[in-house]
């Protein structure tokens, strides 16, 4: 299946969805002008991927900032992953947060509460 590679900007995240190389990642800053238009291809890609996913999918979120409109779309993505998990697929979410960023850590905890899918929190140091 095709690969999505979007380079991040100061208001849109980097997105890599590459099933062949097993890279599934959203990172950076997310406050796109039109959130729905930005995330729509990503959701569509996941829908297609869910019909024949890899043996194991590790999905990485490494965001430093997202606005409230993006938070809703991120949940939509997580719910797609949850659905695959419910269908018996091996899924893992890795939620990275800067070690001094309690809000980003808490955002991860909140998502982990909402969706029923294996969820790992990983802190890292910003340089």
């Amino acid at each position: 299946m095709n690969t999505i590679k979007i380079m991040g900007t100061d208001d849109t995240p980097t997105v890599i969805l590459d099933s062949e190389n097993e890279i599934f990642e959203i990172s950076g800053r997310s406050l796109p002008e039109d959130v729905t238009a930005f995330y729509e291809p990503i959701i569509r890609w996941l829908e297609e991927y869910s019909s024949s996913p890899n043996a194991k999918t590790i999905f990485t979120f490494k965001l430093v900032y997202f606005n409230t409109a993006s938070s809703k779309l991120l949940l939509d993505i997580l719910m797609k992953l949850e659905q695959m998990h419910e269908d018996g697929k091996d899924m893992l979410i890795r939620w990275y947060y800067p070690e001094d960023d309690e809000d980003m850590q808490e955002a991860g905890e909140e998502y982990a509460d909402i969706v029923d899918v294996p969820f790992e929190q990983v802190s890292y140091t910003l340089n």
Binding site: D34, T36, T68, A69, S71, K72, L73, E110, I114
Partner: peptide, 26 residues
């Protein structure tokens, strides 16, 4: 506030203009 944010994120719909009803809570 945390509970309200979660509920609104789950149940709220994005408006035509992309509002999620989450801004004030945030």
């Amino acid at each position: 506030l945390k509970q309200l944010y979660k509920t609104q994120m789950r149940e709220g719909r994005l408006s035509e203009k992309g509002g999620a009803g989450l801004g004030f809570i945030d």
